[in-house]
């Protein structure tokens, strides 16, 4: 599997990463090299094997429905890049 620069551009858009034109070639090569490594997986027949998403076979523990958080807005917004009137601000979104 070899990635073309166009593929890298598409993935970069999905991941919302700005990647300049000069690095895009390098990413394409690097990523393709890793994919060669990853393709070793195809050596193995894994039919019928349940995928393993977690190292331990545990199930989800549930929390009681209780409110135990307090308002920490000031503390949280103190480190925010742009807030006004308690709102986080981003460039205007047109819907």
């Amino acid at each position: 599997m070899t990635l073309k620069t166009e593929d890298v551009r598409n993935i970069a858009h999905l991941a919302r990463l700005q990647v300049d034109d000069e690095s895009i070639e390098r990413y394409a090569t690097d990523l393709s090299n890793v994919l060669v490594l990853v393709e070793q997986l195809n050596q193995l027949d894994t039919s019928g094997i349940t995928p393993m998403a977690h190292p331990l076979d545990a199930t989800q523990r549930l929390r009681d429905d209780a409110v135990n958080e307090t308002d920490l807005r000031d503390k949280f917004q103190n480190i925010a890049p742009d807030v006004k009137n308690g709102l986080y601000r981003v460039p205007k979104v047109i819907e």
């Binding site: 742009d82 006004k84 009137n85 308690g86 709102l87 986080y88 601000r89 981003v90 460039p91 205007k92 979104v93 047109i94 819907e95």
Partner: peptide, 15 residues
């Protein structure tokens, strides 16, 4: 919620 009418140039976000 995204609030589009709160600021002239920006969208406000209330989480």
């Amino acid at each position: 919620k995204s609030l589009h009418d709160e600021f002239p140039e920006q969208t406000g976000v209330d989480l």
